[in-house]
């Protein structure tokens, strides 16, 4: 694969596993352009955190295949890490210390200017509680302090693992606005993971979807929306949704299979008729057969469902 001069993150056929029999990542080729907000999506256990740990050098890549800022990670770990701010899973905070002390620790290590502590505290709106011990902070405040730690060095790249996980709606909106501001005003490239597209849909410019260690989609949000516009689903309720689900799975990619509702993507009206005939032939009573367009979250779920087949 040709290396793009504008790529901030690039992996070429990245493979990783703790044992050869069970690879966690298979030929993962990511490309994150400068200035992008890249949403790395996938269900739990898809390989998102493993990828992030590899990008940050916490796990050893078996063969050199990760390039950051145009340089190989294995050979340039320290200069690369000095340009990255990161937040992996839950923020790593010393809860017996104050928010300001936590920032001071990172600021000292990163050798940034002392006034930067107050700047990032103001940026994440924690100035008033900076003197309090972190153990008294709410989940949202801890998450914001985690982001503040990542921002201390004014990094070129921000890597955030599930940054809105566990936040209430207000916290999600605050985080989103902050990240959008950083991207627009400071030109920061942001790579963030999530298992819910709806949580990050309003801020990302690019999307990568990973499932079972394989990248199944990579492109702009517009490209994903384009796929969405061409797709429709039929919602089904029957007298026995479990049997109906098993029956439909043999012929169609079932996007959602729950006890009260089934969702099956379709391409034309003949397929809807065929689905109805199949269910009737199996002796199932149909209570609902509703055709609708999908929202983008369904497109994401459908990608995963199709990949799981």
């Amino acid at each position: 694969m040709e290396r793009s001069p504008n790529s901030i993150i690039e992996t070429v056929n990245l493979n990783f596993g703790f044992s050869e029999k069970e690879p966690l990542l298979k030929n993962l080729s990511l490309k994150v352009e400068k200035g992008a907000i890249y949403g790395f999506l996938g269900p739990n256990g898809a390989g998102k955190t493993t990828t992030i740990r590899l990008l940050l050098g916490l796990l050893q890549e078996p063969a050199p295949s990760i390039t950051l800022f145009g340089n190989r990670l294995t050979e340039n770990r320290i200069p690369i890490l000095s340009r990255i701010g990161s937040l992996i899973e839950q923020p790593s905070l010393y809860e017996h210390l104050s928010g300001r002390d936590n920032l001071e620790i990172t600021r000292t290590i990163r050798k940034t200017a002392p006034e930067r502590t107050n700047e990032v505290l103001a940026l994440v709106k924690l100035t008033d509680v900076a003197h309090k011990k972190v153990k008294t902070y709410s989940m949202g405040m801890k998450q914001r302090l985690g982001v503040a730690l990542a921002l201390l060095s004014n990094p070129d790249l921000l890597i955030l693992d599930e940054p809105v996980n566990g936040l209430d709606p207000a916290g999600i909106i605050e985080t989103r606005e902050l990240l959008l501001r950083l991207n627009k005003e400071l030109g920061m490239t942001i790579f963030l993971s999530s298992h819910l597209l709806s949580e990050i849909e309003k801020m990302v410019t690019h999307v990568g979807i990973i499932n079972k260690g394989t990248l199944i989609f990579q492109g702009t949000l517009e490209e994903l929306k384009q796929i969405n516009r061409n797709a429709h689903i039929v919602q089904i309720k029957t007298s026995n949704n479990l049997s109906a689900g098993l029956l439909l799975e043999k012929k169609y990619p079932v996007a959602r299979k729950e006890q009260h509702l089934l969702e099956v993507p379709f391409e034309n009206k003949e397929q809807v008729a065929a689905i109805a005939k199949l269910l009737m032939a199996a002796g199932l009573d149909i209570y609902l057969l509703a055709v609708s367009g999908r929202d983008i979250e369904h497109t994401f779920i459908n990608f995963i469902a199709e990949n799981n087949r």
Binding site: I88, S92, Y94
Partner: peptide, 16 residues
């Protein structure tokens, strides 16, 4: 202290 606050991973991603 590093284990308790899950801070090893953070410490090892700093440019050190």
């Amino acid at each position: 202290i590093e284990h308790k606050y899950n801070a090893w991973k953070y410490l090892l991603t700093l440019p050190l």
